[in-house]
Design a protein around this nucleic acid. Structure first.
Length: 255
DNA sequence: AATGTTCGCAACCGCGTGTCT
DNA sequence: AAGACACGCGGTTGCGAACAT
C-alpha cells in the first residue's frame, strides 16, 4: 500500500472523539470487582500510548496483559495491548507490502490450511495473522472482481508436489472440512475439484473425510455469506464433479 | 472542485481453549 | 469438579485515503 499513514495507521481522533469503551473485553465473564475499574479507551492508538506499551514490554516482557493496564495506567484493556504489540510494536515485524515470494507462499499455505491465519503467520517470519488475513480478503475480492482463480494452477501444483516430499501437520481433510465449514467456494473453474485433489495425498485422506458433519455440508457450503460468487451454475458443476470425486458425499447429500 | 465509490488496514468482537485456584 | 480468568484465533466492522466520475 502506498498511502502515507500515521503511526497507528489512522488519523488520530481528538480526545472527544476517542471512543471510551463501555466495557472491557470478555466482560461477560468479569467479576464485579474487575468491572469497577477505569473506563477503557477504544479506537486508534496514539504514539504516546505506543511508547508506554513498548517501554513496558521491553522492561517486563510479555506476561499478563491485563497487568499492563494496571501497571502503566494505560486506558486500554489487556486484549487491546496484546493486539497492538503483536501487530505493530513487536521489534521483529516486517513492515511494507508482501513480496511476490510471500504472496505465493500465502496462496500455497492457504491451499493446504484454509483460513488458519495464525498458522500461516508462523510460516511467514515478521508477518502477522491479521496482515495475512487482510491480504487474503483483499485477494478474494480482487479475484472475484476480475474472475480470476484464487488458487493459480501452478502454485497448487507446486504445493502438491512439495507435499509429496514433506510431511505436513495439516491434512487435506482438515483443510477441506475447514473450507466447507467456512463456505469457501474458492476454486479455479478451469481446474476442478477433481484436478485439485487428483494427484495429491487427497485420495489417501479421502476416507477420513466423513469426519465432517455431512448433514451440514450442503447448506454451509452453498449458502455461504462470505463469498458470493458461487453461482447456480458453479453449484451444479461442483455437485456434478463431487459425485465423481466423492461418491459418499453425494450419497450423504441426496440421502 | 465536488461528490461518490472503492480499497486497504487497524482494531474490535465473540468464542474456544488452556490454566489456575 | 467447577468456576474464574487470560490468551489466542478468526470474522467483521469502521474509517481515512485513493481513485473515478
Amino acid at each position: 500500500m502506498t498511502r502515507a499513514k500515521s503511526e497507528s495507521g489512522r488519523e488520530m481522533p481528538g480526545p472527544d472523539q476517542a471512543d471510551l469503551a463501555s466495557r472491557d473485553d470478555d466482560s461477560a465473564r468479569e467479576s464485579p470487582r474487575r468491572r469497577a475499574g477505569p473506563q477503557l479507551k477504544k479506537g486508534p492508538w496514539t504514539p504516546a500510548e505506543d511508547a508506554i506499551l513498548e517501554a513496558y514490554v521491553k522492561k517486563h516482557g510479555v506476561q499478563n496483559w491485563n497487568v499492563v493496564q494496571k501497571d502503566t495506567g494505560l486506558l486500554r484493556c489487556g486484549k487491546s495491548c496484546r493486539l497492538r504489540w503483536a501487530n505493530h510494536l513487536r521489534p521483529d515485524l516486517k513492515k511494507g507490502t508482501f513480496t511476490k515470494e510471500e504472496e505465493n507462499l500465502i496462496i500455497k499455505l492457504h491451499s493446504k490450511m484454509g483460513n488458519k491465519w495464525a498458522r500461516m503467520a508462523a510460516r511467514l517470519p515478521g508477518r502477522t495473522d491479521n496482515e495475512i488475513k487482510n491480504y487474503w480478503n483483499t485477494r478474494i475480492k480482487k479475484c472475484q472482481r476480475t474472475s480470476t482463480p484464487i488458487y493459480p494452477a501452478e502454485i497448487c501444483l507446486q504445493a502438491s508436489n512439495e507435499e509429496q516430499h514433506e510431511s505436513t501437520d495439516f491434512s487435506f481433510s482438515e483443510k477441506l472440512a475447514n473450507d466447507l465449514l467456512h463456505g469457501n467456494g474458492l476454486y479455479d473453474p478451469s481446474s476442478t475439484w477433481g484436478d485439485f485433489i487428483d494427484d495429491q495425498e487427497a485420495l489417501s485422506y479421502a476416507p477420513q473425510l466423513p469426519d465432517v458433519s455431512l448433514s451440514n455440508l450442503p447448506g454451509l457450503y452453498f449458502e455461504s455469506k462470505n463469498y458470493g460468487f458461487m453461482d447456480q451454475v458453479n453449484q451444479a458443476e461442483i455437485l456434478k464433479e463431487s459425485e465423481i470425486s466423492f461418491p459418499w458425499l453425494n450419497a450423504a447429500i441426496n440421502g
